[in-house]
Write a protein that binds this DNA or RNA. Structure first.
Lengths: 138, 138
DNA sequence: ACATATCGTCTACGCCTGCTTACGATCTAC
DNA sequence: GTAGATCGTAAGCAGGCGTAGACGATATGT
């Protein structure tokens, strides 16, 4: 047979990565989407909920539930935008930042282990190519 | 911020690949899962339905519907296994092979275009690394 | 002042998912 | 031959998903 297709390989690898992330997030009491939201929050400042939904790819009505829970657990706050009070600006609390940082470290360690068997040059090229591809079709 | 995480990059790229595959499969009257099934069928010979479910990662009870439709459209046949008549052996018909080959060609062209901007050495390393990673944790 | 649009929220719809249970047909072990 | 396991199938369940419609609060254009 031919070389397996990109979609096939990506879905397999994706499944593996998610399987390895799950115990880490479970330990922190986070769901996948919570983590995506926290990450997006750390990377962009003062996003409105609509912007946050767009950034994470989550439906805006689904996002609400995640924010409700994250806010109840004190990881996130929603504040009315002084410039346009229809908007609610979401931001990380120190507690949220702390949880996020701890998860991120564990996940980076997991990723390093996952990629450990690769030839170092290939690993660098892999990450470079992946990043370029994602940025390309933004 | 840090380098984006593997899971983040993979999900983005995956989304893009699937978005580009969809029109191709639509034109052939196939759903994503149909294509995955046909591909798995071409790569392994004489699988039982349970093996096919395992190979594609689809739930065995969900697979039934796909096979029903593919069989109704003459792309696939189910035959009782002479060695164990509980099993049903699934195989591609010539028509199924033809449809699959046409889709595969279109998808490979799409992938080539997607990867076209990469540095050739990076592209080769990317594919090599991706394949190695998937085979690694099988 | 008034009409129109946007934002966040809630509710409901239909679709797809994996999981579970049950069933008949069939194989295997004893 | 009888008991138990396995295969494909059907049906039902809970949960996730995006979408759409409605609503109050708010902003904007005229």
């Amino acid at each position: 047979m031919d070389r397996p297709e990109l979609g096939f390989l990506l879905s397999r690898l994706m499944r593996e990565v998610m399987a390895r992330e799950k115990p880490i997030l479970d330990a922190a009491g986070l769901e996948m989407w919570d983590y995506a939201v926290l990450t997006a929050l750390a990377d962009s400042d003062a996003p409105t909920q609509a912007q946050l939904a767009a950034a994470t790819g989550r439906d805006k009505t689904r996002l609400i539930g995640n924010l409700d829970r994250l806010e109840a657990e004190g990881m996130v706050v929603r504040q009315p935008d002084p410039a346009d009070r229809r908007n609610r600006i979401v931001s990380l609390t120190p507690a949220g930042s702390r949880v996020l940082r701890r998860c991120r470290e564990a996940i980076e360690a997991m990723e390093a282990e996952l990629l450990a068997d690769l030839d170092p040059a290939d690993r660098a090229a892999f990450q470079r190519a992946l990043t370029a591809l994602v940025e390309n079709d933004r």
